[in-house]
């Protein structure tokens, strides 16, 4: 379990990083927190010719929370985001989801943007980016472009970016008014990849009736998916909406896989259970916010 030989570069600026990536071509891989990449290297499941370590690049380690949303830089560790109170006020799903990312040691090194760029459907933050209708900023030699989550995730461990590029930040829009969120997972062991996880946003109208319900799931499907569950509960009073009906609807919308830890049927069961649980909690939060 030792990596195959690779070259190592630790550029001091973003431009320099892009120059190295351009020069090295397809065989180059960006290293940030290394919590997914380094095990892949050690198991020789990946063997990039060059690692471009961006940890010395300035300006990528900040969380910027504005009224519109939260921008998370490429070197922000999960632990930083987990404890960023301003970010949590604007978009509560950030702290709620990062609390479920692995264990403290991994959260201290692993980066939120890195896990998004890794595009693992078992990752919490890929789903949160989708659920919040977020986007990523990608720097290329041609300039910086913004890519919506829907256009970014292509398949498991696969994104739409090709060629020399650094994902410099992820942008999570603010929680809409009269809304609440919740995030919950079932894992075999505490901190493991979820067998199934759910993140939800419930938005109420001014009469505290359900106006919109969105849900995204972890370890269900090949890429992050957002499901609109509004139809199951539209117009119902938030305090006594039929969340079980929303759970049932969710179960019909997902197409999970079987693996050694759980059958597809069991995952589908959990989608229903977690949907019902999280929606009740999110709705209560939305009501609370209106009082």
């Amino acid at each position: 379990m030792k990596p195959a030989p690779f070259r190592y570069a630790d550029p001091g600026t973003l431009d320099e990083a892009l120059e190295v990536l351009s020069a090295e071509g397809e065989g180059a891989k960006v290293l940030a927190g290394g919590q997914s990449l380094l095990p892949l290297l050690s198991m020789r499941l990946a063997a990039p010719a060059t690692l471009v370590d961006i940890n010395r690049v300035p300006g990528l380690d900040t969380v910027e929370a504005t009224g519109d949303g939260v921008r998370v830089g490429a070197l922000v560790r999960h632990a930083h985001l987990l404890h960023d109170a301003a970010a949590a006020r604007i978009q509560p799903l950030l702290a709620r989801a990062t609390a479920n990312v692995a264990h403290p040691a991994i959260r201290n090194r692993g980066t939120t943007v890195g896990s998004i760029a890794h595009a693992d459907p078992s990752g919490e933050m890929t789903s949160v980016l989708a659920l919040t209708d977020g986007s990523v900023s990608v720097a290329t030699p041609g300039g910086v472009e913004t890519i919506a989550w829907r256009d970014f995730f292509v398949g498991p461990l696969e994104t739409s970016i090709h060629g020399p590029a650094v994902v410099t930040s992820a942008y999570f829009p603010a929680l809409p008014a009269r809304s609440g969120t919740a995030f919950s997972e079932v894992a075999r062991r505490k901190g493991d990849y979820a067998v199934c996880g759910a993140g939800v946003v419930v938005t109420l109208d001014e009469d505290r009736r359900v106006a919109a319900v969105r849900a995204a799931y972890i370890s269900v499907g090949l890429t992050p998916e957002v499901h609109d569950l509004t139809d199951a509960v539209a117009g119902q009073p938030a305090e006594k909406a039929d969340w079980a009906a929303a759970g049932s609807l969710a179960r019909t919308l997902v197409d999970p896989d079987t693996d050694i830890h759980a059958s597809a049927d069991y995952r589908r069961l959990l989608v229903g259970v977690l949907t019902e649980r999280t929606l009740a909690s999110a709705a209560a939060e939305a009501v609370g916010g209106m009082e």
């Binding site: 198991m43 075999r188 062991r189 505490k190 901190g191 493991d192 990849y193 050694i260 830890h261």
Partner: peptide, 27 residues
């Protein structure tokens, strides 16, 4: 938690601590 998940070809599908579920203190 623990089992050796051999498939019918004799490949051990969980030959790592990620997939072989040795309990943590939390379990």
């Amino acid at each position: 938690y623990e089992r050796m998940a051999y498939d019918s070809d004799g490949q051990l599908q969980n030959a790592s601590f990620m997939d072989f579920l040795m309990p943590y203190a939390s379990e």
